[in-house]
Design a protein around this nucleic acid. Structure first.
Lengths: 107, 107
DNA sequence: TCGTAATATTGCAATATTACGATATTGTGA
DNA sequence: TCACAATATCGTAATATTGCAATATTACGA
């Protein structure tokens, strides 16, 4: 019942799914978009921009961060987030590697 | 509280998230992988292959199908699923379009 | 027509995710 | 040190997803 039979899938497959999960919520897409547009940004900007509560934004940032997609630096009491481009590209490549392999043969 | 504040995000953003959501579960990744490897396949094969119940597999197939990723043809009482490559590539392009735009500027 | 095989749907239980108020933490400047 | 601003974490409610047994549907062959 319920979820989490993840154990039964091989690592590669779980990895692709995990990457996709980060992108699977519009708030996180918005956050990534905004961060990239701002060339570094701040959580509170996101709260204003996206219109979700500070707690919720912070939570989404954690989800994105857990996949290694963010570099955050404190400047004073504010935290500047920006993309970890290397990791970002790595994930994009993993995704595309799966997608390309999948579409290569078909009926 | 809880979920679904999707209305507040623009269409483009919701679309990317929706695409990612299809890929956000290892069972669905496995299904896509298996279908592509088999050059057309059958639901019951998937049940054996993936080890989830027939009902669950069928459900996942519906999720994948709702994004237009499957073409199913009945041959007798069996249903042959295969990838809708055109749609598959379209989604891949949408994803990459977002990812590329996002990573292009950074601090 | 019946029985059977393959797939879909329904109903429901278990989990996971999302959201937010309240509170904690951390750093700054007075 | 104290008050304040920015961010993180906790607790909890609402919603969504996942999974399966049971049942329905559909198509075939006898």
């Amino acid at each position: 019942m319920g979820a989490s039979k993840l154990f039964m899938f091989d690592q590669r497959i779980n990895e692709v799914a995990r990457i996709a999960k980060v992108l699977a919520h519009p708030a996180r897409i918005s956050i990534l978009k905004y961060i990239s547009e701002q060339d570094g940004c701040i959580c509170n900007d996101l709260v204003d921009e996206i219109g979700l509560s500070q707690a919720t934004i912070s939570q989404h940032l954690t989800v994105i961060g857990n996949e290694g997609l963010l570099k955050g630096t404190f400047t004073g009491k504010k935290k500047s987030y920006c993309l970890n481009i290397e990791r970002f590209e790595e994930l994009q490549m993993l995704l595309n590697s799966f997608l390309n392999k999948t579409k290569s043969n078909c009926c």
